[in-house]
Write a protein that binds this DNA or RNA. Structure first.
Lengths: 219, 219
DNA sequence: CCAGTTGCGGAGCGATTTACTCCGGTATAA
DNA sequence: TTATACCGGAGTAAATCGCTCCGCAACTGG
């Protein structure tokens, strides 16, 4: 009848490692399989049993929500770091690079399939506000093509956030070629970033895109 | 006992229309669902019965092989047109644009899952030879960044050949936003092409990628 | 060493989805 | 009208899905 004394969980460290592995694995599997990503594939890639996944997240949707929240938080932080940089171009290009490397783009396929929480909405607003500041500052410094809008930047990030080469080599298990693929990917990103700089090449066609393109997909 | 006179097939025109619709639908579904694309989804998007699909192609693999062959043929032809252009930059950039618009990138997920025919190998060789010529000519004219290799170009095409925004809006059936998405996509492509031009921005990092990255994936 | 507790992996479950077959019906040329 | 070539999609066995459950291993306090 006595209250048992509080005890430190025996295997808590392993649990935390597993959680991180699950989140990273989920990003990778989502990048490869898109909307058809399965919990079995995620658990397998994390080197973790299915049971452990379902102890931490009650459903597949809950896992994806957590993934989205973390991604948005990371994006907001990256934008803050970008604004902290002295050089406007450095700030913007580091923001873009950070978003790409974190695997922001893996989340595209879950848009519309999960319920958007208030947390997610607030983080998205913050990140977007900071991105606008980054773009404005770069425009004023004259280092960014004047026609480029924040939505252009977001779409460019989304476009570069998945790497067909890297994803497919991962899927085929050809780990030996991965370093070369990662290097090649960095070159592609550099090319795209160079295309954003002021003074180079053809003007951008069409009207500036509205952010409806970006928000509407999450319903 | 007389030989029956040759007759024109009653519904042959419809059959041809269906074939074209199937191929286009396959490209779209592959772009959205990747390796998990199903025959049912392809037939439905084409507005055609499953039976009609299987009358034309004995298996799913046969359909994908035909798709790959057509895509390679298109790529070789686009490179030829590029070489025919007078301006070296115009020739290269039209080749890139043509490859992207044809949906070259939809095929990435089928790499390694289908048997490569001799036809496909020959077409790939031709296309690659012409791409090398395009790149060399652009280098000699001094309009292309000197570090850029043909493999860089191929990887850039692959990177741009799928559009996260467009694909997802299609999947969600939001046809109303598609024109805006298509315009926005063109801006992204222009940005990337501008990044290829000589004289702008940072140098490309790392070693030039080997074409092992590109060939190995088809086993 | 022994209990006691906590988290582990994965076999198994019912429901769904898969590639593909088969056949009754329909559009078209003669 | 009749013959023919092609159509759509219900149906089939097999595979796969998200998720539950439980026997077992790893760790802590005595």
């Amino acid at each position: 009848m006595s209250t048992p004394p509080p005890r430190r969980a025996p295997r808590q460290a392993e649990a935390e490692r597993n959680d991180r592995a699950l989140l990273q694995a989920a990003r990778e599997v989502l990048a490869i399989d898109g909307a058809h990503a399965t919990v079995a594939a995620i658990a397998a890639r994390a080197g973790v049993g299915i049971g452990s996944l379902y102890r931490r997240y009650r459903t597949k949707e809950e896992l994806f929500q957590q993934l989205s929240t973390l991604s948005l938080r990371h994006s907001a932080e990256a934008a803050e770091r970008g604004l902290a940089a002295e050089d406007p171009w450095e700030g913007l290009s580091r923001y873009v690079t950070a978003c790409i490397e974190f695997g922001q783009g893996s989340l595209a396929p879950v848009a519309g399939t999960i319920e958007v929480t208030d947390d997610m909405r607030a983080l998205a607003r913050t990140a977007n506000k900071r991105l606008m500041a980054l773009v404005t500052r770069a425009h004023q410094a004259g280092v960014l093509r004047p026609e480029v809008t924040p939505v252009d930047i977001s779409l460019l990030i989304e476009q570069l956030a998945r790497s067909p080469v890297v994803d497919q080599l991962r899927q085929q298990g050809r780990e030996g070629l991965m370093p070369a693929a990662t290097e090649a990917r960095k070159r592609i990103i550099t090319i795209a970033l160079n295309g954003l700089r002021a003074g180079n090449g053809d003007p951008l066609p069409g009207e500036p895109p509205t952010d409806q393109l970006f928000t509407e997909r999450w319903r």
